[in-house]
C-alpha cells in the first residue's frame, strides 16, 4: 500500500509537469504546427470531410424547407434589386477597364486590392466554444498559408491560424484578441476616410471593437460599412468586415470606438474563400501578427 501510494504521487507529479510543459509549448509563439500534429490533423480531416457530406446534405435539406416559406416575398425583392444591378454592372465594368488602363499608364500593375482566391469547404467546428475556430478542407497543397484572410460572400470571417498538408485551421473574427488587429476603414468621399483598427471581439456586446484613430470626421453614422484597408500588410483592401452598430467613447473619453457587427454569420459558415494576397513580402508577414496600434 505504501509503495502504491508513492507510485501514484509520482505519476501525478510527472503528469502535472508534463501538462505545464505541453501548455507552455503550445502557447509559445510557434509559427506552425509540429509534424505529428499535422499528420493527425490530416487523418482526422480526411475522415471529417467524408462524414461532413451526408451531414451537410441533411442540414441543407432542413434549411431549404425553412427557406421555402418566405420564398415569394424574397423573390419580389430580389427582382427589384436585379434591375438595379444591371445598370451597376455596366458601370463597374467601365470603371474597371478605365482603372486598368490608367494603371498601365502608370506602370504599376500591383494593386493593394489584388488577391488570389482559394475555395474551401468548412468540415468541422471546434466543440470548445471558447476557441472560435473551424477546420477547412484546403491546406498547404492548395497554397494556403497562415495569416491569410478568410471570407464568405457576405464578408470577412477570420484568418488562417495554422495549416497542415490537406487541412487548415481558421480563427474566426469572434475569437480575435488584441494580437490579431485588422486595419480597417470607412470609405468617404473627398478622401476623408475614417481610419482605425479592429482591436478585438467583445463578447458582452457581440461586436468587434473598431477604434478610430483620426478624429477628423465626426459624423459617423449607424449602419455604415467597415472594410479592411489593406494597410496592415496581411489582408488585401476592400474586404467587408461589418456594419457600425453604435459609437461610444472609451473609458477616458479621449478616443471614440465604434461597435461593429460582423456582416458574415459566424454560425452558418459553409463555403469560404481563402484570400492569398500573394505579395512577396516576407519581412512584413512576420510582424504582421502584432500590428502596432499607433
Amino acid at each position: 500500500m505504501q509503495f502504491l501510494r508513492k507510485k501514484m504521487l509520482f505519476i501525478i507529479l510527472i503528469g502535472i509537469i508534463l501538462l505545464v510543459v505541453l501548455i507552455g509549448y503550445s502557447l509559445s509563439d510557434r509559427e506552425n504546427m509540429s509534424k505529428p500534429e499535422k499528420i493527425i490533423n490530416d487523418t482526422v480531416g480526411w475522415v471529417q470531410s467524408v462524414v461532413h457530406k451526408p451531414v451537410n446534405y441533411v442540414t441543407g435539406f432542413l434549411y431549404n424547407i425553412k427557406e421555402m416559406k418566405n420564398m415569394y416575398q424574397e423573390n419580389q425583392i430580389l427582382k427589384e434589386k436585379l434591375a438595379e444591378y444591371k445598370g451597376l454592372i455596366y458601370e463597374v465594368q467601365e470603371v474597371k477597364e478605365e482603372n486598368e488602363e490608367l494603371r498601365k499608364l502608370l506602370d504599376k500593375p500591383d494593386s493593394i486590392r489584388d488577391y488570389r482566391a482559394i475555395d474551401a469547404t468548412v468540415i468541422a467546428r471546434s466543440p470548445e466554444k471558447w476557441i472560435e475556430q473551424v477546420t477547412i478542407n484546403r491546406g498547404e497543397d492548395a497554397g494556403v498559408a497562415s495569416n491569410m484572410a478568410v471570407i464568405t460572400p457576405e464578408g470577412m470571417i477570420g484568418k488562417v491560424l495554422s495549416t497542415s498538408k490537406h487541412t487548415a485551421t481558421v480563427q474566426l473574427l469572434t475569437g480575435f484578441d488584441q494580437f490579431n488587429r485588422i486595419s480597417a476603414t470607412i470609405s468617404r468621399k473627398d478622401s476623408k476616410n475614417i481610419v482605425g483598427l479592429i482591436e478585438e471581439y467583445d463578447k458582452e456586446t457581440d461586436s468587434l471593437i473598431f477604434r478610430i484613430i483620426e478624429e477628423s470626421d465626426k459624423n459617423l453614422k449607424k449602419g455604415e460599412l467597415v472594410v479592411s484597408s489593406g494597410m496592415g500588410g496581411v489582408f488585401p483592401a476592400g474586404l467587408p468586415i461589418g456594419e457600425v452598430k453604435e459609437v461610444v467613447y472609451d473609458q477616458y473619453g479621449l478616443t471614440r470606438t465604434a461597435l461593429v457587427k460582423p456582416s458574415a454569420d459566424m454560425y452558418e459558415i459553409n463555403q469560404v474563400v481563402v484570400v492569398d494576397r500573394g505579395l512577396p513580402n516576407p519581412e512584413k508577414d512576420d510582424t504582421s501578427k502584432k500590428e502596432d496600434k499607433e
Binding site: 503528469g15 502535472i16 508534463l18 501538462l19 510543459v21 505541453l22 501548455i23 509549448y25 503550445s26 502557447l27 500534429e37 493527425i40 490533423n41 482526422v44 468541422a124 471546434s126 466543440p127 470548445e128 476557441i131 475556430q133 477546420t135 491560424l161 495554422s162 485551421t169
Partner: peptide
Amino acid sequence: LLIDVVYTGILGVYMFTYAG
C-alpha cells in the same frame, strides 16, 4: 490529446483532465 490537437490547439488540457 487528439481533441487538443484537432480542435483546440492547446496541448495537454483535455488529455490530463479527461485522464484524471
